[in-house]
Simulated scan of single mutants.
Amino acid sequence: METLHPRASLWLLVLGTAVLLDLGTQPIWGIEDNSKLLTGINEKALTRFLIHVKRGMNDTPQYAVATLLPRAACQQPALAEQEGATIQKRLRDVRAKGKLDRDFYINQDNFMVAILQKGEYTTWHAEAVLVGTINTPDFRGNFLERFLATKKQQYPPNNSCFIFFSLISPCLDYCLNPNSSTYILSDLERSLQGFDSRFQAFAFKYAYEEDKPKGKKQVWEAWRQIPMPLFRCFFYPPASCMRCNNKTLDNRCFDEIWQFSAKDYFG
């Protein structure tokens, strides 16, 4: 009787485990596949805008910024450049005055910003702070929903663009886990009711360190639930923002993430 090579035996074990665990099953909390959502956002314009956001926050280790823009700024790189330069200046001013060291988030003009607090706030995620799902009962409230409601006259839902940028992608165990007290997706979706879905984007630069070993399939099944088109942005030359798609094997949005899912290997 022919003996299987040890490596082949290992892959069969992985595949068998995948079948038993049904790794290909869609998560029960699914909203929809954001890679299939229509978008009118120009990727070059998004890149130009977020370059300035990144500069405004400098080397802050983790932060999230939610911004309302005139729609044209999400379509035309030249206008995105102008809006971005303004945001960069305001973000630097917020940081220079130490406001983010005293407050868990800042609401200013047409943007909100939060950082990952240290010390007593180590359980807070910056993106959850902005949405309002903070893991502290005293500070609960949908801050993003209130922010958008107060800006509707200046930035009409049918003629504006909403950008949510988190330097590090949302953590699967917290912000994208429906059983977590910091779950952001239902509140994020509710906050954006009435705003044109074609002009919304969730963007990030890094994959969350603790998510990388979970594999591309598991990470994508969580990311794809974000109720707006998802972009990954790189800021080293040449800077670019690219839309994430559902092809786990050839998608640069999954750079840095290990392939550890049997579905990645066996289709």
Rank of each mutant, 00 (worst) to 15 (best):
Asn110Gly: 10
Thr25Tyr: 00
Ile115Thr: 04
Asp250Ser: 15
Pro157Trp: 04
Val19Pro: 01
Asp22Phe: 01
Glu256Val: 06
Ile28Arg: 13
Asp109His: 12
Asn42Val: 03
Leu46Phe: 11
Lys247Asn: 15
Gly98Gln: 10
Phe260Ile: 11
Trp220Ala: 09
Asp196Phe: 03
Ile115Cys: 02
Glu43Pro: 06
Gln88Tyr: 09
Cys241Leu: 07
Ala73Gln: 10
Leu21Ser: 00
Leu192Phe: 13
Thr133Ile: 04
Tyr208His: 15
Pro77Trp: 09
Tyr105Cys: 07
Ser35Asp: 06
Ala72Ile: 14
Ile51Val: 11
Arg190Ile: 08
Lys212Glu: 12
Ser191Thr: 05
Gln108Asp: 12
Asp211Leu: 09
Ala126Leu: 03
Tyr174Trp: 05
Glu209Cys: 10
Phe195Lys: 08
Tyr155Met: 08
Leu185Pro: 01
Leu37Pro: 04
Tyr265Gly: 08
Tyr206Ala: 13
Leu167Ile: 09
Leu100His: 02
Glu32Pro: 01
Arg224Val: 06
His5Lys: 01
Lys214Gln: 14
Lys214Gly: 01
Phe164Thr: 01
Ser9Lys: 08
Tyr208Pro: 03
Phe254Ser: 04
Glu210Lys: 15
Gly24Met: 03
Asp103Glu: 10
Tyr63His: 13
Pro6Met: 03
Tyr206Val: 07
Pro178Tyr: 13
Pro227Ile: 11
Gln62Tyr: 14
Gln193Asp: 09
Phe231His: 08
Asp211Arg: 02
Ile163His: 06
Ala222Lys: 13
Gln193Trp: 08
Phe260Tyr: 05
Ala8Pro: 00
Asn159Leu: 02
His52Ile: 03
Glu32Met: 07
His5Ser: 01
Arg95Ile: 13
Arg140Asp: 00
Pro156Cys: 08
Trp220Lys: 05
Asp22Gly: 04
Asp138Asn: 07
Gln259Lys: 11
Leu148Ser: 11
Trp258Thr: 13
Trp29Tyr: 12
Ala8Cys: 00
Thr67Cys: 11
Asn177Gln: 07
Cys244Asp: 05
Leu50Val: 02
Phe104Trp: 12
Leu148Pro: 08
Ser180Val: 03
Asn246Arg: 07
Trp29Ile: 02
Thr136Cys: 02
Glu83Gly: 01
Asp196Pro: 05
Phe111Met: 06
Gly24Gln: 05
Leu130Pro: 04
Ser197Gln: 15
Glu81Arg: 10
Val219Ser: 10
Leu144Cys: 02
Thr25Gly: 06
Ala207Gln: 15
Glu127Pro: 00
Asp33Ser: 05
Ala201Met: 13
Asp59His: 15
Pro27Ala: 05
Leu144Glu: 01
Cys161Arg: 08
Leu12Trp: 00
Leu188Glu: 13
Phe254Ile: 07
Gln62Glu: 15
